[in-house]
Design a protein around this nucleic acid. Structure first.
Length: 900
RNA sequence: GGGCUCAUAGCUCAGUUGGUUAGAGCGUUGCGUUGACAUCGCAAAGGUCAGAGGUUCAAGUCCUCUUGGGCCCACCA
């Protein structure tokens, strides 16, 4: 007995129930099974602070489709879930939360503050994990990992040590991106440059007097430099000009007096200076600009840091000490102006790095940080992609990746925040700064060099990405051996599931994450971490702006699920997202998915109401051959398998939208609109019963990865084998059932029906009594038999019960005729309509056909076409031409018939 | 400065290795339906594929340039 299907599909009643069912039965979890091939997807771990947005919904739907598809195809399918501790982001959130109690993190102290972060994480950190369940994500939750797990941290420490021992990690003072609000260093990737409207300030630096002067030498009173950041002038230790610059030739080696500070600074020459820009003379501030830093090193200049970590001016700034940097800028300009040393101000478009967390303008800042030497790691990672071992979809991202990798800069990995992996670096107070550095897995009791026990750990933590780049193998507990805390054998898991299969992510994190995972995978596992990388687009609003909470233009996926259902959300997102293109979303776009879900629901309901379950209990295929099936049954089977083949082809190429649209068109417009309508009058026929059921059941399985909930709900109500559609097998592609001849024949029938419908509309004939005659050439047995043997439903679908098939043209007097595939379709006019207007219509048709004929003929008059084009194209064109010529002939006959 | 990407129906977009009749969803218009579904069905209208040149027997598709959007990278003070 089948459960009845209710009239309305109501997603919220079913989604939660099935999700729980799947999870309770353990369908999401996977274990090493050497008899099966693994298929592994690593979730891009969302931040613990994250809440589900459309980008996640899109990203995770792609992954879930891949995972469910491969699971059904018989792979040991593992979707590894987890969250990222997101150092700065999380610290900021918790700082805000304690601020409500009037506390700063410094009030609590490091240890207490970290405790609070963990408490926060326990309470809110799995929000997004719960939300992912709402969209149906079939992650193996039993393997859930967190980048700050105790075990995960062991991987991080191990990696740090190995790189350090290899000489790939070093400490040094360099200009880094400093966020004055977060009080930490940032990597170059974390300080994205954004255009900024600013000014170019032209400052006069007076030439110092009392210098060795050559008699008769005509020296200017001052040198003018141009700068966008005048406040840094307090740290200037030189002026640089291009050695080729004639304007300044005689000034090289001379000294100027730095205004406001009255420091004597030299004019140096360096080819790095662009003569075209500004005045051709550059102020050099080695402690506040990366270029100036390089100049400073090269020319042995002094490095004067003029700011505190919070971007207030420090003691080196003289009387400006204590002023915030932009306040100091104003004051300095004012003072220079007063002294007549501000020559001019010109508007200037510039770009400045912004903190990726708080969007504060970063300060290029000289400080001592830890770095990873990247070039040696990049080398094999470049090779792997160039050799095609790792492929990007769409391929264009390959170039982006290679370009970055080939110009890779060292990676600043130390952060001056509290939440994160502490550097496994210790210092001995007994030794000096250089020799007292100890890198160790555990805190050493004594200094190995001097034996002192006075040892302390580095205060810094590692960049968050320094843990996430290990995700492909740290999630399998590398480098641990033996049983994992979750009871699996670590090495075995790693050996079986690594390398993973497909990574699905957005372009924004190719540098942050994807490239670094490739480097870490090759370095620490000796193997690439994944084979395919599918890069999908960004979700934008209808205006094309990136959807984000701060812009207030986001559509909450959970709201969409509430209103339309999870399957509708998934299907809509997938079907409108072309490979690698951005998606422009508005809420109405989810109606398409909702409507499709409803269509599936109602078609199933209809089938259930008309299905005798006994008729499908036996595998009736045994009892009849394909040839015994009616044309329409052979046709729908063929269309199903053609569609299946397309879906597989598209999924294998990550063309999800094409796969979704194939399914949509097949199920709705072929199965529902044509097939079910055709078999309706004869629905109890055992063949129809069986095929109808089979097509529905198999379609549900193919649609399941896209729309997991509704397919499960319906599948369970029909006769089925197994516990759940999600662990049923993917339909086997039976190519021999694809029947192009049946598809061709059905398309002739569809054309005839559509033609009659159109003629009826044109003549405005109400339903019911319509005399139609289809006249077929006596030699055309094929079409005659085709139409005669399918006459019943041609009549009913064209609502022309009096339809007759005739072998010869019989004059009906006045008639309206269409010519189609060599057939005359004719409706007697019964003197009701204006013949002249139909003559005009026919004349127009003749004209159109004649112009087509001319186009074809010119094609054939071209010898190159006949000689160079492939034979089958030429043949096809010939056929089209003869068909057109026949049509014109017949149309003429019809038109002339009117005259009779 | 270098690179990527987009421009196709009123709107939002598909269109894979070039093949001659360029598709979908929404919208519009007309018709229809008393038991699968109005969250429906049948139809229609609507496109010189941004512009110019080139390659080719054949170009929405490949190449060059132009125009106009979007994005990324880069040390121009």
């Amino acid at each position: 007995m089948m459960d009845e299907i209710s009239k309305q599909y109501s997603p919220k009643d079913v989604e939660e129930r099935w999700y729980k069912f799947w999870e309770d039965r353990g369908f999401f979890s996977s274990r090493v099974n050497w008899k099966k091939k693994p298929f592994v997807v690593l979730i891009p771990p969302p931040n613990v602070t994250g809440i589900l947005h459309m980008g996640h919904a899109l990203n995770n739907t792609f992954q879930d489709i891949l995972i469910r598809y491969h699971r059904m195809k018989g792979f040991e399918s593992l979707w590894m879930p987890g969250t990222d501790h997101a150092g700065i982001a999380t610290q900021n959130v918790v700082e805000k939360s304690i601020a409500k109690e009037g506390l700063k993190r410094q009030d609590l102290g490091r240890e207490k503050f970290i405790e609070r972060v963990w408490l926060w994480k326990e309470k809110y950190g799995s929000t997004i994990i719960h939300q992912l369940r709402k969209i149906g994500a079939s992650c193996d939750w039993s393997r859930l990992r967190f980048t700050m797990d105790e075990e995960y941290s062991k991987s991080v420490v191990e990696v740090f040590l190995r790189l350090y021992e290899k000489g790939l990690i070093y400490r040094g003072s360099y200009i880094i991106n400093w966020c004055p609000r977060c009080h930490t260093a940032l990597s170059d990737e974390e300080a994205a440059h954004q255009p900024l409207k600013g000014n170019l300030y032209y400052l006069r630096y007076p030439l110092s007097r009392g210098l060795p002067s050559v008699p008769g030498e005509d020296l200017p009173e001052y040198v003018v430099v141009a700068t966008t950041r005048p406040e840094t002038m307090l740290g200037d230790t030189a002026i640089a000009v291009n050695p080729k610059d004639k304007r300044y030739k005689k000034l090289v080696g001379k000294t100027v007096t730095l205004p406001l500070i009255n420091r004597q600074i030299k004019i140096i020459a360096d080819s790095m200076v662009d003569m075209e820009f500004g005045t051709g003379a550059v102020k050099v501030t080695p402690a506040h600009d990366p270029n100036d830093y390089a100049l400073g090193k090269k020319h042995n200049l002094e490095f004067i840091n003029v700011m505190h970590p919070d971007a207030r001016m420090n003691a080196s700034a003289g009387k400006y000490e204590g002023l915030e940097r932009f306040k100091a800028r104003e004051k300095i300009l004012e003072d220079l102006k007063g002294m007549g040393l501000l020559e001019k101000i010109a508007p200037h478009e510039l770009s400045a790095g912004h903190c990726y967390r708080c969007h504060t303008i970063v300060e290029p800042y000289l400080s001592k940080q830890w770095f990873v030497k990247m070039a040696p790691l990049a080398k094999p990672a470049i090779k792997a992609v160039k050799e095609g071992k790792i492929k990007f979809y769409p391929a264009r991202w390959t170039k982006v990746y290679l370009n970055w990798m080939e110009n890779i800069q060292d990676w600043c990995i130390s952060r001056q925040i509290w939440w994160g992996h502490r550097l496994p670096v210790y210092y001995c107070k007994g030794c000096n700064d250089e020799t007292g550095v100890i890198v160790s897995r555990v805190k050493p009791k004594r200094c190995p060099k001097c034996g002192s026990a006075d040892i302390y750990q580095d205060e810094d933590v590692l960049d968050t990405w320094f843990s996430s780049w290990l995700w492909p193998f740290a999630t399998f507990y590398w480098p641990q051996k033996g049983l994992s805390p979750k009871g699996a054998l670590c090495e075995e898991d790693l050996r079986y599931f690594y390398p993973t299969s497909t990574l699905v992510t957005a372009a924004e994190i190719i540098f942050f994450w994807v490239a670094r995972m490739i480097m870490a995978g090759i370095e620490f596992q000796g193997k690439i971490p994944f084979k395919d990388i599918y890069i999908h687009g960004t979700v934008r609003d209808a205006e094309g702006k990136k959807m984000s909470k701060s812009l207030g233009n986001s559509i909450d996926p959970l709201e969409v699920i509430k209103e339309y259902g999870s399957d509708a959300l998934r299907f809509s997102l997938i079907s409108i997202t072309a490979q690698g293109q951005d998606v422009f979303l508005s809420k109405e776009r989810f109606e398409q998915g909702r409507n499709f879900a409803n269509k599936i629901w109602n078609a199933s309901r209809f089938i259930q109401m008309n299905l005798n379950p006994d008729s499908v209990n036996l595998d009736l295929c045994v009892f009849f051959k394909k040839e015994d099936l009616s044309l329409v049954n052979r046709w729908i089977l063929s269309r199903f398998y053609s569609t299946l083949s397309e879906v597989e082809k598209y999924l294998d190429k990550f063309r999800f939208n094409e796969a979704a649209n194939s399914l949509y068109a097949f199920f709705w417009h072929e199965f529902c609109d044509w097939y079910l309508e055709i078999i309706k009058p004869d629905i109890r026929n055992p063949h129809n019963q069986l095929i109808m059921y089979k097509i529905l059941e198999k379609s549900l399985r193919v649609m399941h990865p896209f729309m997991p909930f509704i397919t499960e709900e319906i599948w369970q109500k029909f006769p089925h084998e197994g516990e759940s559609i999600m662990v049923s097998s993917w339909p086997h592609l039976q190519k021999q059932i694809i029947d192009k001849k049946a598809e061709k024949e059905m398309s002739v029938i569809f054309e005839v029906i559509a033609c009659i419908r159109n003629m009826r509309l044109a003549l405005e004939i109400p339903s019911g009594s319509l005399d139609v005659s289809v006249k077929i050439c006596p030699s055309d047995n094929h079409n005659r038999i085709l139409l005669e043997s399918n006459l019943e439903y041609i009549k009913s679908l064209s609502r022309a019960p009096n339809l007759i098939i005739e072998e010869r043209y019989r004059a009906l007097g006045k008639e309206y005729v269409n010519v189609l595939s060599g057939m005359h379709i004719s409706i007697p006019l019964q003197g009701l309509v204006d013949i002249e207007s139909y003559k005009v219509k026919i004349d127009n048709k003749i004209l159109k056909a004649q112009s087509d004929i001319r186009a074809k003929k010119s094609l054939f008059s071209n010898k190159d076409f006949i000689n160079k084009a492939p034979q089958e194209i030429v043949e096809a064109e010939k056929e089209k031409l003869t068909a057109l010529e026949k049509e014109v002939q017949k149309l003429r006959g019809v038109r002339d018939g009117f005259k009779a």
